[in-house]
């Protein structure tokens, strides 16, 4: 609700409500002030235009009501500050989850990609060393000879997390400053060279749930691009065979077939319903430094981890 009103992205995190609420309240305050001021302003310039009021009044406003108004604004600002903003920040930087099921992930930014490191079954991150960095095969310089490093899973631009479990992401960068931005998680944190900065959150919706909400109906023929879009359900032809499969991309061929079979309206959603954005200018590729966030049900997450491990073994 709040998100819609303000035009924010969908919120899929537990703490995001508080951020949204603060954004909402401060905008309500701003709006009330602005409307009040502008009403007074327009009334005043209309009433005291030269044509209507040829002689100005030397003193003008005689009351000091405005001082009270200013005091009230100050108090409201303090309320937002002390009531929401400061406590939230304290939660953000010091109340890190300690539950045993907390997922720990490391993100190492670089020009222009997000390297992601999972500690693997042993739960401990392997050692990294810049001497081992190889742009193609080992971008983070992971030491596979370190016992803890053997089982570490690394990906580029693909961040997978389970839903409803506390997550801690340790952020750092190999080169310049980037900013790790998960719009739907209301997470944004600069990555600073020479520093490791952790953030924590809990996802409350899976990627599939997000996709449902982002789904739109497309009417053929369409000028809209279907790049990166997938069908939201199976669409079968007259003979009963499936033309467009749920979760699959839709090619021009598919569209033609659909139209032939009299289906002119389909529901599509984004293949990746959540993204990692880079929010800090980091060079000429800043604009394309995009990663993907996939939020799984626990079982799917475990499956994904297993697949990764198997791949690692080969």
């Amino acid at each position: 609700m709040m998100e819609k009103l303000l035009g924010l992205p969908i919120n899929a995190s537990a703490h995001g409500v508080q951020i949204d609420r603060l954004i909402l309240w401060v905008h309500v305050l701003m709006l009330v002030l602005f409307v009040g001021w502008i009403a007074f302003f327009i009334y005043t310039i209309a009433r005291f235009r030269r044509g209507r009021n040829p002689k100005a009044d030397y003193t003008g406003v005689k009351t000091h009501a405005s001082s009270y108004l200013e005091a009230v604004i100050a108090v409201l600002e303090i309320v937002l500050l002390v009531g929401i903003s400061i406590p939230f920040w304290s939660w953000k930087v010091s109340a890190f989850p300690t539950e045993p099921d907390t997922v720990r992930i490391r993100v190492i930014a670089q020009q222009f990609a997000w390297n992601i490191q999972y500690p693997g079954p042993d739960g401990v991150f392997g050692r990294t060393d810049i001497k081992l960095v190889n742009e193609q095969t080992n971008p983070i310089g992971l030491d596979r000879s370190d016992p803890h490093g053997k089982d570490d899973i690394t990906t580029v631009n693909q961040l997978h997390i389970p839903v409803n479990r506390p997550i801690i992401i340790e952020l750092t960068t190999k080169d310049v400053i980037h900013s790790f931005f998960l719009p739907v998680m209301r997470v944004k944190q600069d990555t600073i060279p020479g520093m490791i900065i952790p953030v924590h959150f809990v996802a409350t919706q899976t990627s599939d749930q997000l996709r449902e909400q982002l789904a739109t109906t497309i009417q053929f023929p369409t000028t809209k691009s279907l790049d990166g879009k997938v069908a939201m359900q199976d669409y079968a032809g007259k003979d009963g065979s499936v033309i467009a499969k749920k979760g699959r991309a839709i090619s021009t061929d598919t569209i033609n077939k659909l139209v032939e079979n009299g289906i002119t309206k389909i529901s599509v959603g984004p293949r990746y319903s959540a993204e990692i954005a880079c929010a800090q200018l980091c060079g000429l590729g800043h604009y394309r430094m995009k990663g993907f966030l996939t939020i799984h049900e626990q079982a799917d997450y475990d499956k994904w981890l297993k697949e990764q491990l198997e791949e690692l073994e080969q």
Binding site: L22, I23, M30, F34, R186
Partner: peptide
């Protein structure tokens, strides 16, 4: 006056660090 008003008022959400998490560098 109103233009500065809009600019100034929108400084408030930026100045509240919690709201700035979402709005920073946008």
């Amino acid at each position: 006056l109103p233009m500065f008003g809009i600019g100034g008022l929108t400084g408030l959400p930026l100045g509240l660090a919690t709201a700035d998490i979402h709005l920073h560098d946008t």
